[in-house]
Design a protein around this nucleic acid. Structure first.
Lengths: 329, 329
DNA sequence: TTGAAAGCGCTAACAG
DNA sequence: CTGTTAGCGCTTTCAA
């Protein structure tokens, strides 16, 4: 007992075509007819069947957001931005969580290929990119955010990773730090490569950086911090290349009775956690997450082959100074 | 130049029906036939068209999660749990964010009515429920979580709000607090009503609670704390009925040079933020967020009219003691 | 300006 | 066990 478009048409005394055009707002009708159709719709409680429309048009007016983990505040914020922009464009948003599993990443690209969604905003946090590169992705239907997948033909929206590292490095250098630890992703990830390079560039000539590579998670940060503590490195400051890493570091430091900034200075990256309420408030590089999300949706919704479909968009970061960095004594 | 099921069928020398059944895994075929079909699919790169399937079956194998705000860590965690369980059941997840706007809430219920999704997991944080009650919701297609909508015919999954308040109240009572502030939603919301009632019940006979009602947001918490500070209440402890509220409180307290727990004891609710790293580490009632999410999906996926389709599920909470509460001096 | 008719690609009765 | 046939409900070309 579903109401079909032809039921409405019959009642309104017009053809299904006319009702369809009316509903989709692509026809100008005499007021009398408008009223009759409107009435018929009201009367029957007619609701267009989305699946039928989608089959017919081949579009779904929906996009997918592919991220490693929605419980991670960084991606949650990104999702909020994407959702808001998508909603403004009347696009439905599907949430695709990968947990960094290649199988899931492939499945979601597959979903795109099946037209389950019209486009994909894709963020990945792991280095096994061969799987992705092998996939055929229709042009204009995918945009990469946060992290690069070399060779994948899609526009990109990143923050200024190098600039962020640079800001952190200079800040630490100004405080006199000459041995600093880098905790974050390795060079196989663009973000790791760039943040580290920026850090190096920002530090004083001849300064030394100790690398303790880890994933951008609390566990990763904690493990890296433990490894670091086990060695005699002479490090006086720590650059955690993600807030989650900083949290892991903080946990380990606290367990060992080490204090920030007295024993180590610390700077984070992302600035999405309530870092200002921590003990101590944490200095961090702030990512323009909202802008990243908005631009990504923009690119997906932009007219095919527009000029902005190409290339890479790099958004500026800023350093938010708080109380976790002190001059070296 | 899309590959249709009949192309595959032709190549494999069978009927479309057979291919359909094969693809949907609802037929046992001679190995030879299996191979021919598999080969044809491989050869053509055939991908079933989801929209066609959905139109044909009337199902979409997708559910929607309706929440106020995905950037709120509580809902982000809930989303993670829901996503995980949905994925395990091969259900697609649409993210519907309302920002507590009644218009959006209605739109998403509408999406359900249109079969855009098969079911809805619905969380709302505001009191204007008339709009919702007015909507017709097909039975078994919606489950309420986190907050109640009186009169809406759907199963419910909540945490033990009363029990949480009780735990907080007893804890504070044991420390000798006799004047405590409640910061959170008012009685129009089930959570507010129950958490407050629990708190009252947990406190000592004759203890006094000062209500400073506010939304479950940082801003709400900050505003309520400011109002509270402006009055001479003699309060020695604060029960923030959500982590976000506690964060707002902490901000205001810090600005005014007030200290926790020296000047005020503080207990939060949810325990989803990294409260253990705050200054000081915050005591809080912990919600079983993952369980809530899983059960919600369960209920949606459960066979129609199963026994568990009815009624209300209340999941236990626990008190996580940290350093934000001190005995009253 | 309006409508008839032909799909969109798949599934599921029903018949063989 | 396999295939034929008739839709699912909408959009859209094309003709009137």
């Amino acid at each position: 007992m579903t109401i079909r478009i032809r039921d409405v048409a019959k009642i309104a005394g017009v053809s299904p075509t006319t009702v369809s055009r009316f509903v989709n707002d692509q026809i100008r009708l005499p007021e009398a007819t408008r009223r009759r159709i409107r009435l018929a719709i009201e009367l029957t409680g007619y609701r267009p069947n989305l699946h039928a429309r989608r089959l017919s048009t081949g579009r779904s007016d929906s996009i997918g957001l592919v991220i490693p983990d929605i419980a991670n505040p960084f991606f949650a914020r990104l999702a909020a931005a994407v959702e808001d922009e998508a909603d403004a464009r009347r696009l439905e948003l599907s949430l695709f969580v990968t947990l960094n599993r290649p199988g899931r990443e492939r499945a979601y690209i597959e979903a795109l290929a099946r037209n389950q969604v019209d486009g994909l905003i894709f963020a990945t946090n792991h280095a096994e990119h061969d799987l992705l590169r092998a996939q055929q992705v229709a042009p204009g239907r995918m945009v990469l955010v946060d992290e690069d997948v070399p060779g994948l033909p899609a526009p990109r929206v990143f923050c200024d990773n190098y600039g962020g590292g640079l800001l952190a490095g200079r800040h630490l250098a100004a405080l006199g730090h000459r041995r600093v630890a880098y905790l974050g992703a390795g060079p196989e990830l663009m973000s790791g490569r760039l943040r580290l390079a920026g850090l190096r560039a920002g530090l004083a000539e001849g300064a030394h950086v100790v690398e303790a590579l880890c994933s951008y998670t609390r566990e990763g940060g904690a493990a890296a911090a433990s490894r670091l503590a086990a060695r005699e490195t002479g490090v006086t400051a720590i650059f955690a290349a993600a807030d989650e890493v900083a949290i892991g570091v903080l946990q380990v430091l606290r367990e060992r009775g080490l204090r920030v900034p007295d024993d180590f200075s610390l700077v984070g990256f992302d600035d999405v956690e309530p870092l200002h309420l921590f003990d101590p408030p944490i200095t961090a590089v702030r990512q323009p997450i909202d802008a990243i999300g908005r631009h990504a949706v923009d690119l997906l919704a932009a007219p095919e082959d527009g000029p902005e479909r190409q290339g890479e968009m790099v958004l500026p970061v800023e350093l938010v100074e708080r109380a976790s960095c002190a001059p070296v004594t």
